[in-house]
Design a protein around this nucleic acid. Structure first.
Lengths: 347, 347
DNA sequence: TTGTACGCGTTATCAA
DNA sequence: TTGATAACGCGTACAA
């Protein structure tokens, strides 16, 4: 009874074959005679050998079978958003053709914990929600020569990215409001930077988060002068905070929120303020997720293909690993009219 | 311009030092003179060397810095439950002292994709929700000699597991109902097996999922003859399905659901059936998660420390890796009285 | 503080 | 169908 775990060498010796033959028996890469195969398996069994050491195999192969998923926020926070969980689901699906598993990584810029982006044994990486800080993550990964796909963010120079038609979609919602007759509209935006500061956006504000910028641009194409209030994150509570701020100061006929969760919060704030939706104020969201607790309202929103987004990212990663050019990265949102928008109240 | 990436050897040669010195510069395990250090770093820079190859390092070290988290269901499904996401959050926290990252693994018994439990380069594993199928996963992992911690499941012989006082807690809720005067109670359970079949449970039904069995046991200690209806998963929709089944057949004065999501669904079904909560029927949940959309109700439930559960699992894993005996694995739920329970209607 | 030498466990390649 | 050989890239005793 040795203290050390058996290796494939031990098994080979025990079975009376060469290590390479034993290896082949486990990998199945080359046909082997039934007899040797049986002998090797028996030897493994008797030695308690349970298969090749993944670390050694991945060193030799140059592949670990692991795809890193990089978040720029606390996991708990990220997973609170249904869009993220659906995307993870699709991502798991998308990389499965690669036979890869997902490694959860967080890049908050300060943590030095290992394995970080610098040291994780990943074959590829998917960056979620490219905030400015993500650029650093990107540099690290690219420096390591690892294929990267960015979801919803600008990565610059030729890095594949999965994109929604954010501006177009948001413009559609804005137009919907305009068609109904609205012209006093306030926009509630997703975070504008890593600092996640709340507050009214100056006209010349620099927006570091692309999703936010794109959706804002789409809305402003229809309502060039609409004031915009930034939320600290995408959640019902944040939406409610934003809503309270808005209704304390003004009475717009419509609020255009950049996410369903924010919209739900705005609706809550509106009702707190004694406003009826949509009679007194119309509200639109973005994402098309199921927001529990919104009943009986059905949110007017843009439905984004969250699962498909993840799957597209996964497949893009798979393609890059196979040295192919990824495709199918541009996805479209669908406008869905609900019960939270209607004609503006007559003044 | 070579086609191959630079190794630490190349860097050492370029810097005019030995490979071991270069290695030490990167790991910081041994003091080095400022001069050599600078030289090595410069050499690395000029060769585009971004640090030790994680695969080689982990082979050498015998550690990968990765902890596997094994689910027995689709990731999307698992993450739909707030309890799971909170637990993941805690888990990420708990293993962080180890400096480890989390690898998402799924064991559905059929997938042959790699890396599976057999081949993933993990230092330890956390099994979530030990259904019968999980026993197989367990065998695989143990066979590989990898430390395992089980969350909410019976792993048998000396495998550390993070446990809630499910039976006790559920008994407290049942007693609460009994004290109010209820005696016509129906129980809605979590899945009873991997097949996730719905339906009334026979008195002698074998329950393969421990959480389900424990909570049921606690309830039956107070209401020995209460009929139990199994749901296919823990969700509001499943709760509603169960609720509809119940109210179509009978009019219990109280329904004891094994999760908050199920309870929310039951409440929805009750209201559909024209029953008021709690006047016509009381409902209790389990978990203490925030269920959006339940307002104005506040669920009477057992609050479980979901984040703490994850953290405990993470710390247990860390302990095992350090050859210590894990502790702090038993966690308690807290009874929280809400507005969904009251005295039974007079018959 | 630096260098030498070797092993970690596997698998690709090629020849037999 | 099997076997010999040579990396894969690194970390670390141990000696200098």
């Amino acid at each position: 009874m040795s203290t050390r775990r058996a290796t494939i060498n031990d098994v080979a010796r025990e079975a009376g074959v060469s290590p390479s033959t034993a290896s082949v028996v486990f990998s199945g890469k080359t046909p082997t005679s039934e007899a040797t195969r049986a002998r090797v398996l028996a030897a493994a069994e008797s030695l308690g050998y349970t298969g090749p050491d993944p670390r050694a195999a991945s060193l030799r192969r140059g592949r670990s079978g692991i795809v890193g998923v990089v978040f720029d926020q606390h996991l708990g926070t990220a997973f609170l958003d249904p869009v993220t969980t659906h995307m993870m689901d699709g991502l798991a699906d998308g990389v499965s053709r690669l036979g890869a598993a997902l490694l959860l990584l967080r890049d908050d810029g300060v943590t030095v914990s290992e394995p970080s982006l610098h040291t994780a044994p990943i074959d590829a990486a998917v960056l979620i929600g490219c905030s400015p800080r993500m650029r650093d993550s990107l540099e690290i990964v690219r420096g390591r020569g690892i294929p990267v796909v960015v979801v919803e963010g600008d990565a610059g120079d030729g890095i594949p990215r999965v994109l929604l038609d954010n501006a177009d979609a948001q413009r559609a919602a804005a137009r919907h409001l305009a068609d109904l007759g609205h012209d006093d509209v306030v926009i509630v935006t997703l975070p504008v930077d890593t600092g996640r500061r709340r507050g009214w956006l100056a006209a010349d504000a620099v927006i570091g988060v692309d999703v936010t910028a794109d959706r804002l641009r789409g809305a402003r194409e229809v309502f060039p002068d609409a004031p915009a209030l930034a939320a600290a994150t995408s959640s019902i509570d944040e939406g409610a905070i934003a809503g309270r701020t808005i209704f304390a100061e003004r009475r717009p006929t419509a609020v255009l929120a950049q996410s369903d969760l924010l919209a739900a919060g705005v609706i809550r704030a509106a009702e707190e303020a004694g406003l009826r939706v949509p009679q007194d104020v119309s509200v639109t969201g973005f994402d098309g997720v199921v927001v529990d607790g919104l009943a009986p309202h059905v949110l007017t929103t843009l439905v984004q293909p969250a699962t498909a987004k993840g799957r597209a990212a996964g497949e893009a990663v798979a393609a890059m690993l196979e040295e192919t050019v990824p495709s199918g990265l541009d996805l479209e949102c669908t406008f869905r009219a609900g019960t939270t928008t209607g004609p503006p109240r007559s003044t």
